[in-house]
C-alpha cells in the first residue's frame, strides 16, 4: 500500500485513541477533584496532568490560575493546542478523509460523524450537562471507531497500520496516566489502605477501565505494586503496556519490509521484557524512572516506524 495511505491510517487511529485517553485522564482528575481535600492538593493534581502532557508552558501562557474550567478549555476545546480533544478528533477525521477510499464507509461515517458532533460542543454547552457525560461520549465514540474498524475492515496491511497506531498511542498514554497518578498518590502521606487512598487508586483504575478487572484478578486490597503490575505487565489486560507492545510487535511482523528489521527487533525486545518482567524489579528501581524509560522506548519505536514505512522510501 501507499506509504502516505499507511501514514494517514496510522495517525487516524492514533488521534482517535489520544482523544479517548485525554478524556480518561481528565475524567479521573475531575472525579478526584470532587473529593474533600485541601485546595492545593487539587491544584497539584491538575498541574501534574498538564506537565505529563507537556502542556504546562502553554497553560501558563494562557491562564493565571489553575481551575478545572481552564484546564478543560485548553484540553478539550483549544484550537492551538495540538493535544486537545477538539484537535485530535479533527485530525482523526482529516486523516480518514484523506484515505476514505481505503477505509470502509462505516469507518468513514463514524469518524466523520464524531467530528461533526464535536463541532456542536462548546464550553458553554458543556456547562449545561455533566462534564462526565462528555467524557463518556468521547470514550464511546472511540469504542465505536475501534469496533467498526475491527468489525468491517479487511485484515490486510491497512488494518495492521491502524492497529499499530492504536496500540502505540495507548502504550504511551497508559504509561503517562500511571506516571502522573503514581507521582501524586504516593507522596500524599496517607498510609496505604486509607479511605482517600482507596478512592484515588480506584479512580485511577477506573480511568483505564480496570477497576472491575483489578477486583477479578487480585480479589484483594488495592496496592500500588499490584496496580503497576496490572497496567504494565498483565498482557490479558487490554490497556496494559504489555498488551500494547505485544500488539505492536505482532502487527509489525506482518508488515515487515526490507528495512524494518531493527524496528522489529526493538519492539520484540520490549515485548519480551514486559512478558518476562517482574513488578518487584520495576518497583525496586523506582516506577517513575521505569516509566521515563518506557516513554523513550515507545517514542523511539514510533520514530523508527515513521522512517521505515511511512516516510516515503526513496528511489
Amino acid at each position: 500500500m501507499l506509504s502516505r495511505t499507511a501514514d494517514h491510517l496510522y495517525w487516524m487511529a492514533r488521534y482517535m485513541e489520544r482523544a479517548e485517553n485525554i478524556a480518561r485522564l481528565l475524567d479521573v482528575n475531575y472525579r478526584l477533584s470532587l473529593m474533600p481535600q485541601p485546595a492545593d492538593q487539587m491544584e497539584k493534581a491538575w498541574a501534574a496532568t498538564l506537565r505529563i502532557m507537556g502542556l504546562d508552558e502553554l497553560y501558563w501562557e494562557k491562564y493565571d490560575e489553575i481551575t478545572p474550567e481552564n484546564v478543560f478549555d485548553l484540553l478539550i476545546f483549544d484550537r492551538e493546542n495540538l493535544s486537545s480533544v477538539w484537535h485530535c478528533l479533527r485530525a482523526a477525521r482529516e486523516n480518514a478523509h484523506a484515505v476514505r477510499g481505503t477505509i470502509t464507509s462505516e469507518m468513514w461515517e463514524t469518524t466523520n460523524g464524531t467530528w461533526l458532533k464535536m463541532r456542536d460542543f462548546s464550553p458553554a454547552a458543556l456547562s449545561d450537562i455533566e462534564i462526565s457525560e462528555f467524557f463518556e461520549w468521547v470514550k464511546y465514540r472511540s469504542h465505536l471507531s475501534r469496533g467498526v474498524t475491527i468489525g468491517t475492515m479487511l485484515q490486510d496491511e491497512a488494518w495492521r497500520f491502524t492497529r499499530i497506531g492504536t496500540f502505540l498511542e495507548r502504550a504511551d498514554n497508559t504509561s503517562r496516566i500511571l506516571d502522573v497518578k503514581y507521582q501524586l498518590l504516593l507522596p500524599a502521606g496517607e498510609s496505604e489502605g486509607g479511605a482517600a487512598d482507596y478512592y484515588q487508586w480506584s479512580a485511577l483504575l477506573r480511568s483505564v477501565s480496570a477497576f472491575e478487572v483489578y477486583r477479578k484478578v487480585y480479589r484483594d486490597l488495592i496496592t500500588p505494586a499490584r496496580v503497576a503490575e496490572l497496567l504494565l505487565l498483565r498482557s490479558d489486560m487490554p490497556r496494559s503496556l504489555a498488551r500494547c507492545m505485544q500488539e505492536v510487535y505482532n502487527n509489525l511482523q506482518k508488515v515487515a519490509n526490507n528495512r524494518s528489521a531493527e524496528t522489529e527487533r526493538r519492539a520484540g525486545e520490549m515485548d519480551a521484557s514486559l512478558r518476562f518482567g517482574r513488578v518487584d524489579d520495576i518497583m525496586r528501581g523506582g516506577l517513575h524512572n521505569y516509566l521515563v524509560k518506557v516513554l523513550a522506548r515507545v517514542q523511539d519505536i514510533s520514530n523508527r516506524i515513521a522512517n521505515d514505512f511511512l516516510v516515503p522510501v526513496s528511489a
Binding site: V255, N257, N258, P312, V313, A315
Partner: peptide
C-alpha cells in the same frame, strides 16, 4: 507526492518499496 519517475518508469511509494 506518492509517485516518482526513475529511468522513465513511473513508480508509487509503498510500505514495501517502489
Amino acid at each position: 507526492q506518492d509517485l516518482f519517475v526513475d529511468d522513465d518508469q513511473v513508480f508509487m511509494r509503498t510500505t514495501r518499496g517502489p
